[in-house]
Amino acid sequence: MTSINHHLDEVILLDYHRGRLNAGQSLLVETHLEMCPHCRTSLRLFDAIGASMLEEVVPVDMAEDALELALARIERPEEAPEPRVAPELPAYLKGIDLPESVRAAAFKPRYWGAPGVWMAHLDAPKDGRGLTYLMHVKGGMQMPVHDHQGLEMTLVLTGCFSDDRGAYHPGDCVSCEAGDHHSPLIAADDCLCLIAANAPIAPRTLLGKLLQPFARI
């Protein structure tokens, strides 16, 4: 695997560590972590920071019978963990080299947002205006210029795309904040990305505006 040049923002990683991200954002962070030793090291650092605070904390007494309960619980046989049934990989993802985290997630049927572009939404409970989806774009396409109204994180799974700030390869993560705009160019090979957005995007061009209702992003 080529080394990853575009990492997740430390503040996002910390929010993941704190359990403050929604299911789609967490999936994106977990997938990046699977691919990125650098960010896994950050997570270990956070555990060590948390542990240093745990050492300092002023203890609060447990209930009187807490130890008795604890000693009783370890004698009970451990319930077998519920068998985890991995969701059936949709036909449109078969044959693509996917990270385990994505493979284990459930996606809805794909739909075509524009010629050469399909999308598939994560099958997760609705969380505010947040949207998480896979986007597959045919090699060589230029995406219409669009603005961002909230935080949008894009993780490259296969292929490569570039914008005015750089080129992104598998494992690379690009975050757009509200107010950013760009027009990504897809390299020769087809590109599959996982995208977690806080708010819908706003196309700047007429073509983009015309396509948006169909693209549902």
């Binding site: 060590a48 948390g50 542990a51 050492e55």
Partner: peptide, 23 residues
């Protein structure tokens, strides 16, 4: 302490997210 903290953190997040994930 770091190991125990990480176990507690995972339990807390699982509780917050109310969903079980593999990783």
């Amino acid at each position: 302490t770091t190991w125990i903290y990480s176990i507690a953190r995972n339990l807390h997040i699982d509780g917050v997210r109310k969903q079980k994930r593999a990783q």
